[in-house]
């Protein structure tokens, strides 16, 4: 069953939001006709840079702001018409999970449980259950202030889950977090969705491709538009054979030659090597042309490499000219 369903959701800020005002080019369509579904047991990654509309989209799902058009449904409840029922199904963890540093782990959880309306006889067993799940059961009486960054993040997750939501919204949950912590965190999320009985749907927003690659399905958001959707593997497959890695000396001269090759669409430098994106089917031709440049240029490595999600994103947005925009946050 689809736990999150967005149908043609749109929201503009600035003049375009006021229908009586003249439409102006600087009015920002933060979310523009976005439709997506996330089923129970699925992790959906909403990927895009700052200002792409990720936060606005999440706010539309929570009905924290009104949609100009379209509809969002959370576990069968309309976000706009049944906001309280819909919100009761949502657990939300923001980038800066708001905990009360002066309170203990258990006091924090109790607070969030009570705010969520869990009855007195229920919150205690539930808090211990959720603490055990995130691995913090030994730390119930520790002040939140004294937790490590990773433990705080887990407490934030516990607080978001304490009322047994069926939809979990994560806003950039592991930006800048220690990879070890991040690994732990994702194990928890994957365990959560793997639980067939409760079947939580997770939507993760992130600007980072490496975080996105952990999701079951990804949607690429760009200027409020959903450019494409698919599993990481599917998305990468769209560029299969079109990304070449080139190493050699001097790299900068090799770059200029590569940029002039008719089969090459884009060249990106990576420290000691280049990545070339070639036109569909042009891979072998490009390799044969560039393999042996005139002396003193030298190519030490030239081969096809598995495309990264970032390559996919850039290829998809290549046609969008890099114009300064008036995007606010």
């Amino acid at each position: 069953m689809d736990m999150i369903e967005a149908k043609h959701l749109s929201r503009a800020f600035g003049k375009a939001h006021r229908p009586w005002a003249k439409q102006s080019p600087d009015a920002l369509r933060a979310v523009d006709d976005v439709s997506l579904r996330v089923a129970a047991g699925e992790i959906y990654g909403l990927v895009g840079p700052d200002g792409a509309g990720k936060t606005t989209f999440i706010r539309l799902l929570c009905n924290a702001i009104r949609a100009d058009a379209g509809e969002a449904t959370i576990a069968g409840y309309s976000a706009a018409r049944q906001p309280e029922l819909a919100r009761a199904q949502i657990g939300y963890l923001s980038q800066r999970f708001s905990l009360y540093e002066e309170l203990t782990v258990l006091e924090n959880l109790r607070f969030f449980a009570e705010v969520r309306g869990l009855p007195a006889q229920e919150w205690k067993p539930r808090c211990h259950e959720i603490l055990a799940f995130v691995g913090l059961d030994e730390f119930g009486s520790r002040r939140a202030k004294l937790l490590s960054g990773g433990m705080k993040q887990k407490l934030g997750l516990a607080a978001a889950l304490v009322h047994r939501p069926r939809v979990l919204l994560l806003d950039e949950p592991t930006t800048g977090v220690d990879p070890l912590t991040r690994q732990d965190f994702w194990q928890l999320i994957i365990r959560l969705v793997s639980d067939a009985e409760h079947g939580v749907a997770v939507l993760v927003s992130t600007p980072y491709m490496d975080e996105a690659s952990r999701c079951g399905r990804i949607g690429l958001l760009h200027h409020g538009h959903l450019l494409t959707e698919g599993t990481p593997t599917q998305l990468r497959a769209t560029l299969q054979g079109r990304v070449l890695e080139l190493a050699g000396t001097p790299l900068r001269a090799l770059r200029r030659i590569a940029e002039q090759d008719v089969g090459v669409e884009d060249v990106q430098m990576f420290g000691d090597r280049l990545h070339l994106r070639v036109k569909p089917g042009a891979g072998d031709d490009v390799i044969s042309r560039l393999r042996a440049p005139a002396a003193p240029l030298q190519v030490t490595r030239l081969r096809s490499v598995p495309p990264q999600l970032e390559d996919v994103f850039i290829a998809l947005t290549a046609e969008v000219a890099a114009m300064p925009t008036t995007e606010g946050k």
Binding site: G48, I314, V320
Partner: peptide, 21 residues
């Protein structure tokens, strides 16, 4: 480059490489 989109990040790095050159 925290929070900037991949295309902008690549352009930024091109500027950095030009400086290093």
């Amino acid at each position: 480059t925290s929070g900037v989109d991949p295309t902008a990040r690549r352009m930024f790095w091109d500027l950095i490489y030009a400086l290093a050159e």
